[in-house]
């Protein structure tokens, strides 16, 4: 299974330079724990890894093959769990999940959906429409997506939000299983999620010292001072 790497990544949100010169590497079986204060770019980095956000500079690659060369292949390799739960109020939990499983390439979407709900400890919500689910149940439903269709790299943005202690323990077990089978995870979190042997990435290490922006010369990397200015 290939290694996922990012090198010299720079993230620009609007005019704000969020992080710059960031490198990471996730090999099969490994976990990457993203740490840092609010606004340090944890979510942005995960969105960048997913391919939602284009890096301003730097590159993402699978075994050295750049992601932009094969965006379809990249999307087939990842699962992304963001802040929003993507639960349709009029569909039942099982229908919600089966749709994503089918889209992700599961052979029998309904069966894998039910199995995934079972694994996350909420088999009883399968027939319940999305609008009656609690925040925690929606969260579990969203997390169940990563099990309903297989993908090697999981990108989890604050997965423990709205989860109780038991659910977090379940999640830890699921991540450990995934890694044992050669899967990879990148997780951003404030709370503690136990991931033995996880590599830690402190995003505040990559925050630029001065508030750089796209309209400064140096953001273009070629220096800007010309003869007329120096004279």
């Amino acid at each position: 299974m290939p290694v996922f790497t990012g090198s010299e990544l720079t993230c620009l949100r609007g005019d704000r330079l969020v992080f710059t010169g960031l490198d990471f590497r996730v090999a099969p079986g490994e976990a990457l724990l993203l740490l840092g204060p609010n606004g340090s770019g944890k979510s942005s980095l995960l969105r960048m890894m997913a391919g939602l956000l284009k890096p301003f500079r730097g590159r993402l690659a699978w075994d050295g093959a750049p992601v932009p060369d094969d965006p379809d292949g990249h999307r087939a390799k990842i699962h992304y769990v963001g802040h929003l739960d993507a639960v349709k109020p009029v569909l039942t939990a099982a229908e919600n999940l089966a749709f994503w499983a089918g889209l992700g390439g599961a052979a029998d979407p309904r069966a894998s959906a039910l199995a995934a709900l079972d694994r996350l400890g909420v088999p009883q919500i399968a027939g319940v429409p999305g609008r009656y689910l609690s925040a925690g149940q929606k969260r579990r439903l969203n997390l169940a997506r990563v099990l309903a269709a297989p993908a090697p790299l999981w990108l989890l943005d604050e997965p423990s939000v709205a989860l109780d202690r038991a659910a977090v323990a379940l999640l830890e077990g699921i991540i450990a299983e995934h890694r044992a089978a050669g899967g990879m995870v990148a997780v951003s979190t404030h709370a503690d999620i136990a991931m033995p042997g996880a590599r830690e990435l402190h995003l505040d290490d990559f925050t630029p010292v001065t508030g750089g922006n796209a309209f400064d010369d140096d953001a273009f990397g070629d220096g800007g001072i010309e003869g007329e200015d120096a004279a």
């Binding site: 391919g51 999307r75 802040h83 993507a86 889209l103 997506r145």
Partner: peptide
Amino acid sequence: YEDGSLELLALSPVP
């Protein structure tokens, strides 16, 4: 767009 499904659709293997 509002419930996050659009992001997931954009990330699904379907173009």
